[in-house]
Structures are given as structure tokens and as C-alpha cells.
Simulated assay, not measured.
Amino acid sequence: MKQEVSPVQQIEVYSWPTPNGHKVHILLEECELPYRAIPVDIGAGDQFKPDFLAISPNNKIPALVDPHGPDGKPISVFESGAILVYLAAKTGRFLPKGDREKFEVLQWLMFQMGGVGPMLGQAHHFRGYAPEKIEYAIARYTNEAKRLYGVIDRRLAQNPWLGGKEYSIADIATFPWLRSWERQGIVLEEYPHLKKWFDRIAARPAVQRGVEVLADRRKPITDDKAREILFGSTQYQRR
């Protein structure tokens, strides 16, 4: 049974039910850390509010505030990959301590941050959100999605987990981005090792709890105002 913790002692995660948000929700659940999820409605422009920019200067979710940082003082962390490394270091979990094993995990975390997230995000945009269908862009990012799935499948043919022998923050970071495989133009059965890995992660109770965090807040992006905030000139204003 979890011990009740005062709200002032809880980690605060400023987030939204997106892949980058869910990766942090999942790790918090896996580590059984007391936390409070504070919604940042990115379709309404909450990410541009001064209070949020103070902890996330790149105006992206998620961001985290830990009242008990490494020196006992509050600390804020932005960028989902950095948050995963921070929480793994704080708890001593899901990131190996040995240098060789640690860097094996970190390289696959960077693969997610630099490749899987940005490229699958572009596939989502041009396949589903772009105001006009640009066949070149759709083909480019769909093919890149297939290439990345292939890289992961080959890795998982040789190792049970992305980082090697143990489940780690590399798996936690990557899994949420692959939950929308159909929207990325992917047939999951074409990547059997990846599918087996995906199903194992999806069955974990902490993962199931993590992907439900703030899930009731998410709405389809259908109105012009939300589209403009997310994809239009609002995104590029100097602040």
C-alpha cells in the first residue's frame, strides 16, 4: 500500500497525454514515486504561459519539479529524456550502474530522442494533421518510420530489451511513440521481434497506469484555433 504523501512533498509533472508525456508518467509509476500530474493543455496554448516557460523554456511538455532535488533543494527539469535520466538516477532504477551497460542504454535513449520521436512526429503530422496532403512528405516520413521500426526489430532479435538484458528507460522512452503505429503507416506484424517486445511492455501494470494519466483530457485536434496554436504562427513567436 502506498504511503500518503503531502502535496507539497510530491513531484509535480507538468504534462499532457502525448508520447513524451506518457514516458514520464510510466517511469513515475514504475518507480512508485509520489507525484501529481498537472495538465498543460497544448491545444489551448498553456505551454506559452510565463509560469510554464519558467521551468520549460522550450515551451514543450513535459517538465518536472522535484521538491527534493539532489542537494535537498527543489529542482526543475525539462526535456523528457533528461527527466527519465534524472528519475533513474534519483531512484537507482531502470538505468544500469556499470559504465558499459549504462551507455548501451543511453545510446538507445538518444536514438529515441533524436530519431524515433521527431521522425514519427513528422509522420503523424503529414499523414493526419497537415492542412494539405503532400505526397512527398507523407512518403518520406512513412518510409522513415518503417526504417526505424526495422532498426528496432533487428535490435530486439538479438536482445530482449533495447538497452540489452534488462528493461530500462530506453524501452520506457520508445514504447509510447509506437502505440500509434497504425497512424504511422506501420503493419506491426511485419516486425515480429518488436511486436513481442511491445506486447510485453503493454502488459506491465505500471505502463497501463501510466498511459491513463491525463488520458481523459485529450481531445481530437479538429478546431482551427488548436491547429493554429500547435502548428501555426503562435508556435514561432519570440518570447
Rank of each mutant, 00 (worst) to 15 (best):
Phe48Met: 13
Glu104Phe: 12
Ser233Ile: 08
Gly72Gln: 03
Pro96Ala: 12
Leu106Glu: 02
Val187Pro: 03
Arg200Gly: 07
Asn159Val: 10
Asn159Leu: 15
Gly114His: 01
Ile186Leu: 10
Glu32Met: 10
Pro34Glu: 04
Ala139Tyr: 10
Val151His: 07
Pro176Asn: 07
Gln10Trp: 05
Arg227Val: 12
Arg100Val: 14
Ile75Asp: 01
Leu28Thr: 00
Tyr35Cys: 01
Arg154Thr: 15
Val5Trp: 03
Ile83Cys: 05
Leu230Lys: 04
Gly115Ala: 15
Asp99His: 12
His193Thr: 01
Lys195Cys: 00
Pro160Ser: 09
Arg93Ser: 14
Ser80Asp: 07
Ala145Glu: 10
Leu188Arg: 11
Ala123Pro: 02
Glu144Val: 11
Phe231Tyr: 15
Arg36Asn: 10
Gly117Ser: 08
Leu109Lys: 06
Asp199Ser: 11
His25Glu: 00
Arg147Gln: 07
Arg155Pro: 05
Gly115Tyr: 06
Trp197Asp: 00
Pro7Glu: 05
Thr234Tyr: 09
Asp224Ser: 14
Leu53His: 06
Asp199Gly: 05
Lys73Gln: 13
Tyr86Asn: 02
Ser80His: 05
Pro39Thr: 01
Phe111Gly: 05
Leu194Val: 08
Ala226Thr: 14
Lys90Arg: 12
Leu87Pro: 04
Leu106Phe: 02
Tyr149Arg: 09
Pro19Ser: 10
Lys60His: 08
Phe78Ile: 08
Glu32Tyr: 06
